[in-house]
Simulated scan of single mutants.
Amino acid sequence: MPVGVVVRKSPGVTRWAKWSWKAVAILPGAGPADWAVLRSEGDNVEYHAATVPLELWSTDTEAYLTAISDQIPCVYVVMRPTDGTDIPYDVLLITASPYEAQDYADSAEELVEKIPMTEGLVAWVRDFANAHHVDEEFIKRRRDKKRIDQKEDGRGDARISQATDVYRAPRRKQTGAIH
């Protein structure tokens, strides 16, 4: 489903950032856009930054069910900084999976914004998840009987023979000749 992303530009609150950019809304079913001005009020400007496809995958239904079961169901907009042109961010993607959004947020290279879903979008995601979700049976992992506490591989420096301080640095051997 094509989804438009609305980005708000407002004055920065610190002397280091002249402007603050934030994805604030979505437009399900929107047409193509390229930073079209939607409205302007003083220094605040809202843009229809881009329209990107919201793709749902049958393997991610558990994540979608998690997203729509939140108190406020949300989608996540991922934006990547540009190279300093007039357009500060490229809208990379929109996802209904909180797990995928977390992966992008962990890298700290992209800006990830959480935006509430519209009722129609919630119904669309719910219908998809219900149609494709398959519960996976939990399989408890069994440990093998191998004892790994008997040997200390990789601990300390192998060139040090004494067991008292395995973390100290090795010394050069004294040759007896004085230079």
Rank of each mutant, 00 (worst) to 15 (best):
T164M: 05
E136R: 12
D127L: 01
K22S: 06
S20Y: 01
G156F: 04
P116Q: 01
A33Y: 02
E109S: 06
I87W: 04
V6I: 15
M79W: 04
F138C: 01
I68H: 02
V78D: 07
R143K: 11
Q71W: 00
W16E: 14
L121T: 09
K145P: 00
V6E: 10
E113L: 08
G31F: 00
R168N: 11
V112W: 04
A108H: 12
A50M: 04
D106I: 09
A105S: 15
D90N: 15
V78Y: 02
R142Y: 00
D153L: 06
K140V: 10
V13K: 15
I160L: 09
S161W: 04
F128W: 07
D90K: 12
S58E: 08
A96K: 12
Y76I: 12
P98N: 09
G176D: 10
A36P: 00
G120D: 14
S20A: 06
P32G: 14
R39L: 11
A105L: 03
I115Q: 06
S69A: 14
V45H: 05
V78G: 09
P73G: 07
G120P: 15
T51A: 07
P73A: 02
D165G: 08
D90M: 03
A158E: 15
L121K: 01
T14D: 15
M1E: 11
G4M: 05
A108P: 02
G29S: 04
K145G: 04
V91S: 12
K145Y: 02
Y47F: 15
T51E: 01
D83G: 11
E62N: 13
V3Q: 04
E46C: 05
E152M: 10
P116F: 06
V5F: 09
F128P: 11
W16V: 08
V134W: 02
K140C: 05
D127P: 02
I94G: 13
S97A: 13
A50E: 10
G84Y: 14
